[in-house]
């Protein structure tokens, strides 16, 4: 799709590719959330971190992106920095050693702490200006450009026949702000009510579907 004169590709892996700069943009991974629950004696099964990392690799391989931009909430909580979780991410990082990674800090990152320096993540606070875009974790209008943000975990509720309802994560592009869906597996979605001018793309299984 075209946005602000730039060509963007929306991926079913819940990521967005900025073609010109070869950047894969991803928001709200919340890695280690299940581990945080386990640390609080709530029995969440394992597998969410592995799945997220596999999906990230798939998106990178598919697009050949050279740079990964994380729009906040990479880690979920300090208690979620379990040894197994960290080891998995470390190993994933080794697999993508040449990838440039930038993390725009979000509210959860502030609590959980920055990723270990060995991983080579460049961390910065919002806003992060890259014309024509401004990258943020929290969505807020910026004069300098079109904001791409996370934090909301946008989803739309769709109703079908027979009173069936489904809530699906989506990309939501408004006039000045665009929201990315939450990348993480164990993340909830917040229902948004798009206005008529907004462009909404729903993630349904293996497809990204434009909503009318």
């Amino acid at each position: 799709m075209d946005l602000q004169g730039e060509s963007l590709v929306l991926l079913p892996e819940r990521a967005l590719l900025w073609e010109r700069t070869g950047t894969l943009v991803v928001a709200d991974a919340h890695l280690g959330k299940a581990a945080a629950f386990r640390a609080a004696a709530i029995p969440m099964p394992g597998g969410t971190t592995t799945e997220a990392l596999l999906r990230l690799t798939a998106a990178l391989d598919r697009t050949g992106a050279r740079r990964l931009l994380l729009l906040g909430d990479f880690f979920h909580a300090k208690s979620g920095r379990a040894s197994q979780t960290l080891a998995a991410i470390s190993s994933w990082r080794d697999h993508h050693v040449d990838l440039q990674i930038v993390l725009v800090r979000g509210n959860h990152d502030l609590g959980a702490g920055d990723p270990p320096s060995e991983w080579g993540f460049a961390c910065c606070d919002e806003p992060c200006l890259e014309p024509p875009f401004v990258f943020r974790h929290h969505p807020a209008e910026e004069r300098e450009g079109y904001v791409l943000a996370g934090h909301i975990h946008p989803a739309v509720s769709l109703s079908g026949l027979g009173r069936q309802r489904e809530k699906l994560p989506c990309f939501l592009f408004g006039e000045r702000i665009g929201l990315l869906p939450a990348f993480g597996g164990f993340t909830g979605g917040a229902s948004v009510r798009p206005r008529r001018e907004d462009r909404v793309f729903v993630l349904a299984g293996d497809e990204v579907v434009a909503l009318r």
């Binding site: 959330k33 609080a40 597998g47 979920h76 208690s79 959860h108 809530k167 597996g185 993340t187």
Partner: peptide, 19 residues
């Protein structure tokens, strides 16, 4: 504790997928 909040629908999905 906000970081320990998850909806039951979410639990269900995670369990259905991983357990």
């Amino acid at each position: 504790a906000r970081h320990l909040q998850a909806s039951s629908g979410l639990f269900y999905e995670v369990f259905a997928k991983y357990d």
